[in-house]
Structures are given as C-alpha cells and as structure tokens.
Design a protein around this nucleic acid. Sequence first.
DNA 1: ATGCGCCCTGTAGCAACTACAGGGTCAAGG
DNA 2: CCTTGACCCTGTAGTTGCTACAGGGCGCAT
Lengths: 139, 139
Amino acid sequence: MAHTSSMTIGDLAAATNTSVETIRWYEKVNLLPAPARSAGNYRLYGTEHLRRLGFIRRGRDLGFTLDQVRELLALADDRKRSCTEVDTIARAHLAEVERKLSDLTRLAHELRDVIGQCGCGSVADCRIIEALSPHGELS
Amino acid sequence: MAHTSSMTIGDLAAATNTSVETIRWYEKVNLLPAPARSAGNYRLYGTEHLRRLGFIRRGRDLGFTLDQVRELLALADDRKRSCTEVDTIARAHLAEVERKLSDLTRLAHELRDVIGQCGCGSVADCRIIEALSPHGELS
DNA sequence: ATGCGCCCTGTAGCAACTACAGGGTCAAGG
DNA sequence: CCTTGACCCTGTAGTTGCTACAGGGCGCAT
C-alpha cells in the first residue's frame, strides 16, 4: 500500500501524517513539486517527494514558518554551500522561540494571580473581572 | 483633547493604545457597540466605550481570544451572576497557555540540540539539515 | 479657498491551513 | 455488467485578528 515508489496522495498523507488538503496546498505554494499524474489524473508520488515532505513536516514541527522551510530546503538542495546560513536561520528561530517562551511565562504568572483571587461569589465582586476592567489606569 | 465624554475614534485609539482600524473592526464584529455619530458622520465615543475597549484590550493582552473576551464581557455585564463561569474560562485559558509553554520548552531544547551540533562546514554534512531530513524514520 | 490632518466605507491581504461543493476514477462484490 | 463506496480531482470560501490600502468626505487654520 505504501511507497513502492508510486504512492497516491492518500498514501503519502498517511506516510507523513499530513492531510491530503495540506499536501495539495504545499504543491500550490511551490513547496512540493507537482508530481506525475496517472491516466485518471491522480497524483503519483515517489520517494523523493516522501523525503521532501518529511523535511517540510519536521521543519514545521520545529516551528519554522513555511518561508523558513523553503529557505532551508533551498540550502539543503545546494549541498556544497556552507551551512552558515542554515545555522543563522536556526539561531534566529531559537531566539524567537525564547522570546515567545518568556512572554508566555509572564502571561501564565499573571493568569495564575488573577485566578487565585477568585472566590467565586457574584460577578459584582469577581476579582477576575476586576482585573480585566481598567479602573482609571488606562495607558 | 481626550475623553470629555465625547471622543473621536482617534482620541479613543490614543487613549487605549489601539489602532483606529482595530476599533472599527471591533465594532464590526460586535465587540464594541456602534457609537453615536456627529453631523459629519464621525463616530463619537463616551466613557462607557472607553471602559469597554479597555477591558477588551486587557483581555487580549492576557491572551484571551476575541470569543473568550466576548463571553467575559457578557458575564461582566450580568453583575449578579455567579462568577464560576468566569473562573472556568480563565482556568481553561491558563491550561491552554501552560500547554503551549511546555510545547515551546520542548521545542527550544530540540533547537538548541540541533544548533549545538553545527560545525558550519558544508551543507553536505550539516547536522541541522540532517536533523530535519527524515532518514528512514518517518512516522 | 486651499491645504492638511483626520474621518468615512469597502475591499483585499497575511499565515497556514481546513472544509466543503460538485464532480470523476477505481476496485470489489452481487 | 452494474453498482456501491472509497478514494481522487478542481475550485472556492472560511478561519483568527487584525493591517493596509483606495477613493472619497469633513473640519479647522491660514
């Protein structure tokens, strides 16, 4: 059923844990090259597509944007180039992730504060609503 | 120039650190009620709008979705209701934030691993590209 | 009266898909 | 041979939370 070097889109989807629609969409935005077609106009994928889609999915799992993945793919294709550029992209991405992490950490603290104060009485004296309401102190 | 109980949209935007377009958009999606209009068809806002928009912005800063903010606003308006529902929304949101936090933490670890191995030689033996490439182990 | 800054409506675009609608294809079972 | 059902095709619209115009009107100072 799987990649004997000629899979349908459904086979490829199953093999890479991707939805069929997402694969077609990657093709549309030129991340995945258009494959050959069968007599009945079905897409036919080979192992190269499998590898490439695997790369894309792994990059996405690591939180790279599609543009970053595109760039990484281009670099990976040019195998004799220095990998300094790859390193740069990855480091920039890590910095971004670390920024988001600290934002979220601060946010979680604030939420825990707000929730901790709720005695679950009536809304009229709910601490959460109060914390949301700007009592004069608007920036 | 500000909220003498009749601000233009620009005044309100400045007072709440929101863009004019965003305010119009909140009106369109029924988060902010449509205000009175001047003779020249300008929106005229009062202190109630100021308070409500402040609430919305604070909720957004805390990472609530617009739908959650909408729900919180509805609850806040009904001041004699128990605030259990408010607590539920806030706790669900905190759980979500904590889930994202742990995802991002794991991601940062993976990225640091991947980056740490890059000797910056040629792409042919780049550890980052290798880490992205699915070497047989496709799920 | 003319310039400038603000305001108006409406539409299109971003990321990264997802969810149809309205069809065609293929293999198996009756 | 024909039908059923699972899959495939294209194309369009929707999601979230805005942002960015385009093409015009309003208000005030000079």
